[in-house]
Design a protein around this nucleic acid. Structure first.
Lengths: 221, 221
DNA sequence: CTCTGATTCAAACGATCGTTTGAACTATGC
DNA sequence: GCATAGTTCAAACGATCGTTTGAATCAGAG
């Protein structure tokens, strides 16, 4: 099969840059692993959707897990870059407040859902799903990408909340990570009884306000 | 094989009441589904650990999914009973505050981890895991058990927070569900960089304080 | 045009999956 | 002791899994 395959495997009236097999595999892997989790997604499901031969996974990546690792690294890179840029900027201007830090950490993750179209939502769901996969081995793929910048944010939050115990700030911090992952994976809708939640466009503001209140007033001294 | 099998499949010096095959399957299913998720857990892994024949699953439950359904119903029953009892009690005494409602909802779930020994922690992890399984079909097994009492709690929270928009209270509520599930499944430790969190014995108090602050001050009007 | 490296292919492998089946065993009632 | 229902067993099935293999195709350099 020639490399010239229209994006998404379907003809469209505007010819878009052709994805390589490797890129199609990564794109579909993100989508399917996000939807079904690692164990609930087979290589055959991925390769069929990517219009690729099943052996292509082993050729380009080495194994199923290596495909996942590559997808996680690719997905996390821009989010971590943006978090790092914003933290550098904040720290250059003085000691950031808890709200500034929470915002700088949360917004890059939620922008995926809210501002990057369908692809952004796919990436966000993928990241949220892998961050809390049942298997520690899989979660470690996420941790490897995120721990350095996350440790910096935790340290900065501690400085921003001098009246709270360091362990309490750490407690708040992992709650923030957990909630962010759940929102990224769009796992928190609908509410019990099917009641609508808030306007999705305001998710970032609502989550940030929720977290800021919890950090400012809900951590022990 | 006779029915007289010591608990846990190992000899011990004190003979405990003999579990039936059905009970051993449910106990091991809770543990293994909690650790690995539904798709990451095979029937053979469960039946080997339960010292049972693989056909016993189909005989007692009908299918792998039916085994899971039975385990979820069994695990949720006491938690929901306690939540219902506490809500009835609160409403009999007047209009409960947000803190009282959060406490009445969260404590039964966390008591599993904190006060019911190893078995309680296994059940908590199981519930937390299934509540946010990637597959909607699996999550619905949890929803079927919990939606009625959860809908009552949401309604009561709205009464307790008259200055917050109803959708905002619903937003807070699903965040509470998500955080509770993460803590039950013990998915939020350790913190980035391996920093220790709070004293596990204080998890309930810490989580409740965190949530109360978020509900009281972090929801939009 | 030829050669070489990159890439894709169809087919197959061994392993494991969930489910089914007929036989054997156990417990209980008469 | 016998009959019956409940329960467990070993074995097998068809399907799917991730990985491997040798062949074929494609792209690019000389």
């Amino acid at each position: 099969m020639p490399a010239r395959v229209v994006a998404g495997g379907k003809e469209n009236s505007v010819e878009t840059p052709v994805e390589s097999t490797r890129e199609r595999l990564l794109n579909v892997a993100e989508q399917r692993f996000g939807e079904g989790g690692y164990e609930g997604t087979s290589l055959r499901a991925i390769t069929v959707a990517a219009a690729a031969n099943i052996a292509a996974v082993n050729y380009h990546f080495g194994s199923k897990e290596a495909l996942l690792r590559a997808a996680v690294a690719r997905a996390m890179a821009p989010v971590n870059t943006e978090r790092r840029r914003r933290l550098d900027q904040l720290e250059a201007a003085g000691t950031p407040s808890a709200e500034q830090l929470i915002r700088a950490f949360v917004e890059p993750g939620l922008d995926l859902v809210l501002r990057r179209g369908e692809r952004g939502a796919v990436v966000a769901r993928f990241i949220g799903r892998i961050a809390f996969d049942p298997s520690q081995r899989i979660r470690e793929l996420y941790v490897a990408e995120s721990d350095p910048i996350e440790a910096r944010y935790l340290a900065a939050l501690r400085l921003a909340l001098p009246h709270s115990a360091p362990e309490a700030v750490a407690f708040g911090y992992v709650n923030m990570l957990g909630l962010l992952a759940l929102h990224q994976s769009q796992a928190l809708t609908p509410a019990p009884g099917g009641v609508e939640l808030e306007d999705p466009g305001k998710l970032a503001e609502n989550l940030i306000a929720f977290l800021v209140a919890a950090f400012d007033r809900g951590l022990r001294a």
